Amino acid sequence: MDAKSLEVLRILENNGRTDIPTIAKMVNLGEDAVSAIIRQLETDNIILNYQAVVDWSKARESEGVTAMIDVKVTPQRGVGFDEVAERIYRFPEVQALYLMSGAYDLAVVIEGETMSEIAAFVSEKLSTLDEVLSTTTHFQLKTYKHDGVVFAEPKTDSRNVVSP
């Protein structure tokens, strides 16, 4: 991948709503060239999706529940963790799935409406998979920063100006 494509990719990763004329000026290319780069990045499955980062605590009455589940599994001969990971990420509740180093093998991020819904997922779906040896569930209590976006309200300086 060339340097201009990487520049375009970084700009879109920072803000997927940046328009083509702005990107063209930022990378010193024509708009047609930038459009071609973006199309190629999408075709090559380098750009997979464009998403908004939403502060759900301000958007609706019930925020729902997010849980991060550490999972210890038995890897399968010849495919390692890939086969069990595929079975897990196919559940609609699963928002993200990562292979991890350390005490646990997989980190699963799921969303539900209630803690009971998360508990049912763990006990009825995740823990019943033959390859799953153990799980540890962590519930998200508050979001401070997500995908590089800080959720705190900007603080204003309310001190009075003092001059001699």
Rank of each mutant, 00 (worst) to 15 (best):
S158G: 11
A36M: 12
A96D: 15
K4G: 07
P75C: 06
I46C: 06
G102Q: 11
T143W: 00
P164T: 10
L6Q: 15
A24I: 08
K25P: 03
G102P: 10
V71H: 00
Q95N: 14
D147S: 14
T18P: 05
S35L: 13
E63Y: 00
E153K: 13
I37F: 01
K142S: 05
L126P: 03
K145S: 06
I47Q: 01
T43N: 13
T66H: 02
Q51Y: 11
I37L: 05
V132E: 01
L29W: 03
T128L: 08
A36V: 12
K142D: 07
A24Q: 06
S127G: 15
L41K: 01
R10H: 11
V71R: 00
V34C: 01
M26T: 08
K125Q: 12
S127Q: 12
K25F: 07
S5K: 13
H138W: 10
D19Q: 09
T128D: 01
W56M: 07
R10K: 14
K155L: 14
A85H: 01
T143F: 00
E131C: 02
S134Q: 11
M100R: 15
G148K: 05
E153H: 10
Y89D: 11
V34Y: 04
E113M: 11
N15V: 07
S101A: 14
D70V: 08
E63R: 05
L29R: 09
G102C: 07
I118G: 01
R60G: 00
V73E: 00
R60L: 02
P164V: 10
K145H: 05
V122G: 04
I23C: 01
G112S: 11
A152E: 15
A67C: 04
Q95E: 15
E7V: 05
S127E: 10
A36Y: 11
A107I: 09
N15R: 05
D32N: 14
Y104F: 13
V8F: 06
G148D: 05
T22N: 06
V54N: 06
Q95M: 12
Q140E: 14
Y144G: 12
Q140V: 15
Y98N: 13
E93Y: 08
T135D: 07
A59N: 06
E117K: 09
D157W: 11
E113H: 08
K4L: 10
T74V: 13
V53T: 09
A3V: 15
M1C: 09
V73C: 04
I88Q: 01
E153F: 06
G30I: 10
L129T: 02
M115T: 13
T156L: 14
Y104E: 12
E83Q: 09
G148N: 05
A36S: 15
I11A: 04
R77C: 06
T136S: 14
D44L: 07
V53L: 07
R39G: 09
T43Y: 11
D130I: 08
Y98A: 13
V149A: 03
S123Y: 05
K125D: 09
E117N: 04
L97N: 02
V73S: 02
T114L: 05
L48M: 09
V8A: 03
S123F: 03
G64R: 00
L106G: 04
D44N: 13
W56N: 01
L29E: 11
D2G: 15
T43G: 08
G78P: 00
E7P: 03
A59Y: 03
S101T: 15
A85F: 02
D32T: 14
I118L: 03
H138E: 10
H138N: 14
